[in-house]
């Protein structure tokens, strides 16, 4: 257990925890785009910047990304100093030039009083902020189907060789985690399309409702040893089935009692 000071308040934290988690747990709002508990922090978006100092530093202070900074005994953290706000404003101003159509970034920038970027808008840009959340979550899943390709301003997230990704299983983890919702996907007529690859969706044997992609289910069956029949029926039908079975038990018990 270590003690840190956040905005003048002494707070207990567990060793090894990152600053951002501790700050958020105590109800202090800090913007962040690339942070998610399920993936390793990388500090790509730089928005979670805070100011840190220590008593023995004699007034010297530095700015760090809180998602990457482990808590230390005696750390003094300030989350909303004028300098920190200025840094966040600059980042948001630049992000707004990079992806002017992103509602998430527009909303964040508005909170910091920026309504229009002061930089030149990137021509033909998409809303990708290159935070690597999608590639990191794919890695956690054990597939690594997508990665960053190209260099400089041509760098983008794509499957290998721009073709259909052979390792993709159609789980939508990348699209779900993307902070700016840039990864397009569609579910139509039993088919899921993502990264230009088509996946068959499992249809419920009883009602025909679509659940998850068959390849995702196959992956879970193989990797986590889950019986295949669990995936054949949708959750609504499985609940009805459970009610029917429980009903049978009740009826049997009543028969025995009589």
């Amino acid at each position: 257990m270590v003690h840190i000071t956040i905005n003048g308040k002494v707070i207990k934290a567990t060793e090894g925890e990152m600053l951002l988690s501790v700050i958020r747990r105590h109800g202090i709002e800090i913007p962040a785009l690339c942070h998610h508990e399920a993936i390793e922090p990388t500090g790509n978006c730089r928005l979670c910047m805070v100011e840190i100092t220590r008593e023995e530093w004699d007034g010297w202070k530095k700015h760090v990304t809180s998602c990457l900074y482990p808590v230390e005994e005696g750390l003094i953290v300030s989350t909303h100093t004028p300098d920190v706000i200025e840094i966040r404003k600059t980042i948001l101003d630049l992000q707004l030039a990079n992806c002017p159509d992103s509602e998430v970034i527009q909303k964040m920038a508005e909170e910091y009083g920026i309504y229009k970027t002061s930089y030149e808008v990137v021509p033909e840009g998409d809303n990708c902020i290159m935070c690597y959340a999608c590639t990191r979550i794919c890695e956690v899943l054990g597939r690594s189907a997508i990665s960053a390709v190209g260099r400089g301003h041509r760098k983008e997230i794509a499957p290998p060789f721009g073709a259909e990704p052979p390792d993709c299983i159609g789980c939508l983890a990348c699209a779900q985690i993307c902070p700016t919702d840039v990864i397009p996907w569609t579910d139509r007529d039993n088919t899921r399309t993502i990264w230009d690859r088509k996946f068959e969706l499992i249809s419920c044997k009883e009602c025909g409702r679509q659940t998850i992609a068959r390849e995702f289910a196959d992956y879970l069956i193989e990797k986590r040893n889950i019986p295949r029949e669990y995936f054949e029926i949708c959750d609504n039908c499985k609940r009805s089935e459970l009610a029917r079975k429980m009903g049978e038990i009740v009826a049997r018990a009543q028969e025995v009692a009589i």
């Binding site: 789980c171 779900q176 998850i212 995936f231 949708c234 959750d235 609940r239």
Partner: peptide, 14 residues
Amino acid sequence: IKCMACVAACPFGC
């Protein structure tokens, strides 16, 4: 991250 794996895997749909 709402991948729906648990929803699909739960044998009782709960």
